[in-house]
Write a protein that binds this DNA or RNA. Sequence first.
DNA 1: AAAAGTTAGTGTCACGGTGACACTAAGTGC
DNA 2: GCACTTAGTGTCACCGTGACACTAACTTTT
Lengths: 229, 229
Amino acid sequence: MQPNLAISTVIFALRPDENGRNTLMIPLVKRIREPHLGKWALPGGPLVGNESLDEAAARNLRETTGLTPRYLEQLYSFGAPERSAGAAAERVVSIVYWALVGTDEADRAVESENVHWLAADCLPELAFDHNLIVEYALWRLRAKLNYSRVAHGFLGEEFTLAQLREVYEIVLGRPLDKGNFRRSVEASGAIIPTGRVVAGASNRPPALYTYDKTRSLADRGPLNKPSDY
Amino acid sequence: MQPNLAISTVIFALRPDENGRNTLMIPLVKRIREPHLGKWALPGGPLVGNESLDEAAARNLRETTGLTPRYLEQLYSFGAPERSAGAAAERVVSIVYWALVGTDEADRAVESENVHWLAADCLPELAFDHNLIVEYALWRLRAKLNYSRVAHGFLGEEFTLAQLREVYEIVLGRPLDKGNFRRSVEASGAIIPTGRVVAGASNRPPALYTYDKTRSLADRGPLNKPSDY
DNA sequence: AAAAGTTAGTGTCACGGTGACACTAAGTGC
DNA sequence: GCACTTAGTGTCACCGTGACACTAACTTTT
């Protein structure tokens, strides 16, 4: 008997928490049936139709949360038979993706009784093995932040270096030196000054940058596709 | 309609080629049915039963090639609908693993008309999208060599630094400085001198080492398991 | 209008990892 | 004892990076 195939996605965005501080958050859906009824779970659904895994993940993400990701990458496939934790339960293999959405986009997400953003670093007990999955996605995100440009997935078209640095500080959970951060980002060639500045604040106006769209957000070797920008 | 689920594995080993030079090789099986009849393909099979994905990969590897891997890790899941390249063909989603086996173990592998070792860097056209899969596995292997200890998966219990360096040189495809290699490997603490040496050659006898078995071959974050040693 | 405050952006120094390369050590074979 | 071969050590220059002090530009306050 073949196991069932599902696709789920760990979606990250930076959003203000109840104190107004930007926090790394994940949208979760409340389970409305057994098993694990009432617990929070990753958005997902069965794999059907004739689309690629990437397309299926993007579609499912749109349908369950209304979001369009700025970055989307396959994370891992989970298939331990005890996942469903019911003796008679049928086995499910989940192909899990992870995604980044900008703060602006995250605000457009459907939020209801059954869809809610929760802080990534203090989640309750989730359904199935979804705590482990989120932990792994977090690990991967933090690792990738250091050797790729995925941080831009959190930001809009134009951003200041302070905003980019804030992304790194929140995700990594530690402060970064202003000067050193600027140096390394500029050296990597990941950003392009737009020539414009943010005026109005009571300090020197910061310059605005864009990321280089001709380069992929992450080097995935042979799996790199033009859609990965 | 749910797609079919299969597990395949890219298996790497260092083996002497026709000229006696150690080469990075992959065991492939010849397809005995359509589609892609007659082409070489990665060893694999359907996912059945009640085992975890890791267990299924290990079992399948054993059944198709007779090999027991020293390292085994999930690579990626492939599910493009055009993979099977037949209009009426049913869709297959493959969860692909990659594995390392020692040269000694590789010699014990079943080799027949339909199972053959081929050099990883000059493969013919394989079945399905297996060329892409092998390319990606190679990319991952090379990347992991630089920030983990997976190289030990190619070697036996005891090895000299020259043997370890040879693994790196063959996989990366470029010569490495003897002294610098020793320095970095020793600094990483990955190896432990056994106190023994290889005598008999007409030169200074090289010291033998083992790798530290208390540490995992690769840091996989939350996915690290005791079985990863 | 000058001073204070705030954040943007620059400059400098020390240290650790690494590539290049020359050297010494310890065996065998002639 | 000398040549040869591979093992293993030592040294130097360079570069990326953390720590930290500085200057720049703007608003607000006095």
